[in-house]
Amino acid sequence: MENIRVMIVDDSTFSIAVLKRMLQKDGLEIVGTALNVKEAIQKAQELKPDLITMDMTLPDGDGIECSKEILKHLKDTKIIAVSAMMDEEIIQRARKVGIKGYLQKPVDQTDLDAAIERLFEGEELYGILKNNFEEAFKESIFSFLKREIGGEVVTEKVAAHPMTTNSSGISVAIGIIGRHDGRLIMDMSEETALRMTRKILQDDGQQIDDAINFLSEFTNVIGGNACSLLNGLNRSFGLRVSPPTVFRGKDITISIGDLMSESFVIKTDLGDVFMNVGFQKGDVEWM
């Protein structure tokens, strides 16, 4: 937990001193402290801390309103409530304004460590996922096609990313569920799907329903293999794939712009495959 910049908001200088010592023990950098709402809002804007510990009762207002105001301007800052008062109602209110966790005073070092770890592990994990998912999916589809279809297999990344894409005939979607959720979409023409199915099964009698089954299983394997690769990088991803849904028709438009996603066209001797894969950061769960 290095390079995390913290601001402590508390009306008691004693509490500030206690929290400061605990946070420093964890290797966090204390960039500022504030004794009231006004000072907290002003300093938060100036310092843009990664983390704020927020007392709930302050001389000129409450920690909930103060957090709400701070989060309006600092979307990436995470706030943990630290207060002597803790009941269901205040926890609900805290949660509503975007406070990520609630610790009761006197704060236990272990609880504080756990809360911070969970909040920031998510950030690091998402970074790892962001940097690695493209390669994992490219590797997974390349090795499948190379092994099963053979010949030339070239993966090209689609540079400009549109909000929607038109289906070439058959699309398969599978959901990816884990620490960060996502989605894999595979698309190809009926002809390509048929050619691939016939080649893999070495049976020219294969029909469109067989091709749908093939594409469904194909997507499942690519998704499953890629997620296993990613889970291997960090067990905390816990990525699992849902069963595929296949869409077939003319003039189908697929929305792909709603997630952070990347698209690829994989050129093979039997036709092109379109692949779009994306993940959403998701919110850090309440703790």
């Binding site: 599978i174 959901g175 849904t245 003319k250 438009t253």
Partner: peptide, 18 residues
């Protein structure tokens, strides 16, 4: 647990569920 949605638009979309 649920995944994010995938949205498609079109006429006579034939869906095969799992």
């Amino acid at each position: 647990d649920i995944s994010p949605p995938t949205m498609l638009t079109g006429e006579s979309i034939e869906l095969s569920m799992s």
